[in-house]
Nucleic acid binder design. Structure first.
Lengths: 242, 242
DNA sequence: CGGAATGTTGAGCTGCTTCAATCGTCGTGG
DNA sequence: CCACGACGATTGAAGCAGCTCAACATTCCG
């Protein structure tokens, strides 16, 4: 059963900027329905021209690009509140794929209506651009990490950032959260080999800083993790929700 | 002497999408003036909250992030037609710095008017979001290159992409273009050390594929370069101009 | 029970880094 | 006119972080 935008549980979180009643009402009309997919499903495919845009409501996924040589680069993790499909919506073609790692539920918007939004609800259009700029920021940050940090620093950064994002969503507590990825996924996100990622995770375990076992991540000492990553801590920025 | 948007030389290039007369007129009002800076000037500073947005008209620059450890990651090169300052315009703070490598001229827009644009000219707002999505695409691509390719592949990709972009702007011909950066800049863009970048450039020189000497880049064999980079070739996408 | 998927560990190799020295060019001041 | 310093490019040498290869452990499922 689809939730109405009025009752959207994400909206109330601190990290998402407030929406006016008029905006909520418009979003309700903009929303086409909900999509539920099983773990492992591909939601958007690189090169495809999908007629639909999504906001993740529940569950966790991945954005990734396939490389000519068979490799894969994970571009970002997809968490509740993330908007996906913008590239297809505007440029007509996705430049990366989006896959559900766990079972996911997504809000579905129709691409034709996107233009309506720009004409009739400029504040929502503004917010969408904001999200795109935020995504650009995330990617620039990831690029700096992958381009310049050591393996240990990258893993520490990756785990901390993920944990802080989950925490901001209310999906983590007392240093514990769910991390449903494979080690290969993290390796592909950080530009490391699987083996090296595995050994680096072991180091963090031995240092009593972060324990990742199966689906479950436990951050014993976020500040130590931040220090290893070479930063003060990771702060999740407030942002709009589409 | 500032050129009017009507006579903007960039607009006529194939790679930029057409603008309606009404749009051109609006842009003329949106435009506050032009900024000319010398080589080496910082146009936008990471962390700053600049009241101005820019479109590069002439000259070449860099976007980069400074790292806590003193390092630097070049996020992208800034070429004519590129829009900079979006993050400050929307999120209130730049997440990277922008620096002029050569003398540059930029169109200046006022940040307050940005919201006006969203209210009164949705087609321009739409185009701005498009540009943000395009930038996201570029960054994702760069991330894949830096995260997964070897040094030789990265350098080949970097030179080819730069060349194709210059070519699309009409700033390259017969395999020659201007490349006013230092080797350190390219190294920082590709996540390589200066020394290794230097040695890799030598390899490409010896293989008679690409010759970079001082300000001048000569691509003898674009297809060989593409092959080394592991791609078919690099195609510059059409895009809007703000 | 057997096979597939994921995680773990060891061993050896190499691409890339860091350190360090040299060279060429250019602008500047004596 | 030349000496000097600054800057960038170039090259050699040595070391290591991270890669690949390969074997084995564990869990889960048909």
């Amino acid at each position: 059963m689809a939730v109405s935008c009025r009752n959207c549980p994400l909206r109330r979180r601190d990290m998402f900027r407030n929406m006016s009643a008029a905006e909520v009402k418009f979003m309700q009309g903009f929303k086409r329905g909900e999509l539920s997919v099983d773990a492992g499903s591909t939601i958007l495919m690189e090169g495809s021209n999908s007629p639909q845009l999504f906001t993740a409501l529940e569950g966790i996924g991945l954005r990734y690009k396939n490389l000519p040589d068979g490799g894969r680069q994970v571009v970002n993790f997809v968490l509740p509140g993330d908007f996906v499909g913008l590239q297809a919506g505007l440029m007509g073609e996705m430049q990366h794929s989006v896959e559900a790692t766990t079972k996911m539920t997504l809000c579905v918007f129709s691409r034709e209506e996107l233009w309506t939004m720009y004409r009739s609800h400029p504040s929502r259009a503004y917010d969408l651009t904001w999200l795109a700029a935020l995504e650009e920021h995330f990617l620039g940050e990831t690029l700096s990490v992958v381009g310049r940090l050591t393996g240990l620093e990258r893993v520490a950064w990756g785990l901390l950032k993920y944990y802080r994002r989950m925490e901001a969503l209310g999906l983590a507590s007392e240093g514990r959260t769910r991390l449903p990825f494979k080690q290969q996924d993290l390796a592909d996100a950080l530009g490391l080999s699987l083996v090296h990622t595995n050994k680096t995770l072991k180091k963090l375990r031995e240092q009593q800083v972060a324990h990742w076992d199966g689906d479950s991540l436990r951050i014993s000492d976020p500040l130590a993790l931040a220090q290893i990553a070479g930063i003060a801590d990771y702060r999740v920025p407030d942002r709009p929700l589409i």
